[in-house]
Design a protein around this nucleic acid. Structure first.
Lengths: 289, 289
DNA sequence: CGAAAGCTGTACCAAAAATTTCAAAACGAC
DNA sequence: GTCGTTTTGAAATTTTTGGTACAGCTTTCG
């Protein structure tokens, strides 16, 4: 019996490295498996045991013994590891590709900016143009009444959006997330209303309740959330997810802000004839005051 | 019955593109599946049907219908396609370089995102690391009392920042920009206070007045503004300018948001010992409620 | 040369996965 | 509101997959 104590320590090294390192200790068919895996790393390992075995010209049990010897409890666990490794590798180039010359003096803001830019790109990637345009059309419909709301942190974003839309068009307001404050207002929300709700993890109970109630009343719900989707997605007509990860103890809402501002811009353009007049009127009021 | 003739033509486009393009024709749960897949593309699709379904919050059959609707004969074929696509992408980094370029559908959001990313890079360039760090140190001083304020639109950003800082540390509040509301509070603002003010063009008279009054009382003023600098810069100890141009009739405040979030993150880290306790306490209160 | 030890593959089994069926629920049109 | 249609998920079914036992083969070393 040979050394079985190869625990796969997550010491930052990739599985491929370990395999190369232990190559000499493998048996003949294990070497074949290792070689095939390394030459199509890691995709060969993502197929089924039988396919992997056939590709390597060995039997299925040999493949199983191979992954067991690497320290995995079974083939699925082995595949899970490969997937995670691959995902990490695919996401990291962005973070890696920023050669901040000045050594380490200013990492805080710079690394944060990098991460946010990555989020914005990912957010753009994940939003269907048609979905975005549909929301623009919805918010540009002057017959609709539009309500904004959000949670503890995202409530500020809802307010931000509302403060712009309020100028662009009429029939716009903000609903505070606290149940006591919105219960009464629900009586006047119906089919012609649109609820734009911001909600990221941890999804807030009262905001969910508000949205569900509005949906039940027939309102059209537009949800801006994170990639894991707030439960509100179940009742939402349109879902616009934004990536929110950041090198911080907090999530970043900048992706949501991007969507919000883009919506404001698009709707303003679409309603420009009337929006222009409203904006001029507001401007005039400010000067007079 | 809807259009079923969606054959997956390999016209050089990735599956993700096709999903985005057909998003509007999907049913509710198909959309959920699509969003989850796109958000963690393509790894979400490499798990089992059951895991994918759970992650998307839908049932396994819905996942099956989703992949069938995409033109695959079954889930394994779907996974095979994802693996091959991923392998191709990984082998030729250039292949993925043009996800948007072939300009067709998504001009509004895409161009907006481009502009915003340009703003963020420019903002990062123009902020001296030392200045940023100085502000972090200032906001991390537990003896200071910190007040946030802003204008019509930027007020929401001030609120956003305040809602985070309020949890990280004590002595945090938000001051409404309207003179009637802050006049009285000024009596208790002095040398130990910090005023963080958000102000971009058109610079708002009342916010300027508030800041000047606070400065006159001896408060330290931190200003987040645009590159043309609000008049408040005259009385501010620290100025952090952010680029705000966007392909829109409105300015973009995302650069300000970037700075705000970066400050939150940095201060949280610096005060972690106490911040952690406060965050846990808040979490506990939420659960109990 | 012969026996022990260790690899390897065939055949089989158990477990888990994908898929189908079908009835309930949601939706929309009238 | 009511009816017909579409959509959806629970449960049953079928298929596939990973895993195991065992026997033959090869190698090694006395």
């Amino acid at each position: 019996m040979r050394n079985e104590s190869t625990i796969h320590s997550q010491t930052s090294s990739t599985l491929a490295d370990r395999i190369r390192h232990e190559m000499e200790t493998f048996t003949t068919s294990e070497k074949r498996a290792a070689h095939v895996l390394l030459s199509h790393y890691p995709f060969a390992g993502l197929e089924t045991v039988a396919e992997f075995a056939a590709r390597a010209g060995i039997s299925a049990p040999s493949v199983l013994r191979f992954v067991t010897r690497l320290g995995f409890s079974g083939f699925p666990e082995f595949q899970k590891h490969l997937r995670e490794e691959l995902e990490a590798r695919l996401l990291s180039p962005l973070a890696k590709a920023s050669p901040i010359g000045a050594g380490q003096a200013a990492p805080a803001l710079a690394s944060f900016t990098d991460a946010v830019i990555g989020n914005l790109n990912a957010t753009l990637e994940n939003i269907a143009p048609a979905e975005f345009e549909a929301v623009v059309a919805l918010l540009s419909d002057p017959r609709r009444h539009i309500h904004f709301t959000g949670g503890r942190f995202t409530g500020a974003l809802a307010r931000y959006a509302e403060s712009h839309f309020r100028i662009v068009r009429s029939q716009v307001d903000y609903i505070d997330g606290q149940p006591a404050l919105w219960r009464d207002r629900m009586i006047e929300i119906g089919r012609k209303d649109v609820l734009v709700v911001f909600d990221i993890r941890r999804y807030q109970e009262d905001v969910i309740a508000l949205s569900e109630t509005a949906a039940k009343q027939g309102a059209t719900v537009v949800l801006l959330t994170d990639p894991w989707l707030s439960p509100i997605a179940r009742v939402a007509r349109h879902v616009l997810p934004a990536h929110i990860s950041a090198p911080s103890n907090w999530d970043s809402s900048i992706g949501l802000m991007l969507i919000a501002e883009a919506l404001v811009g698009a709707v303003t353009r679409r309603l420009w004839d009337t929006a222009r007049l409203r904006m001029e009127a507001v401007e005039k009021l400010r000067k007079d005051a």
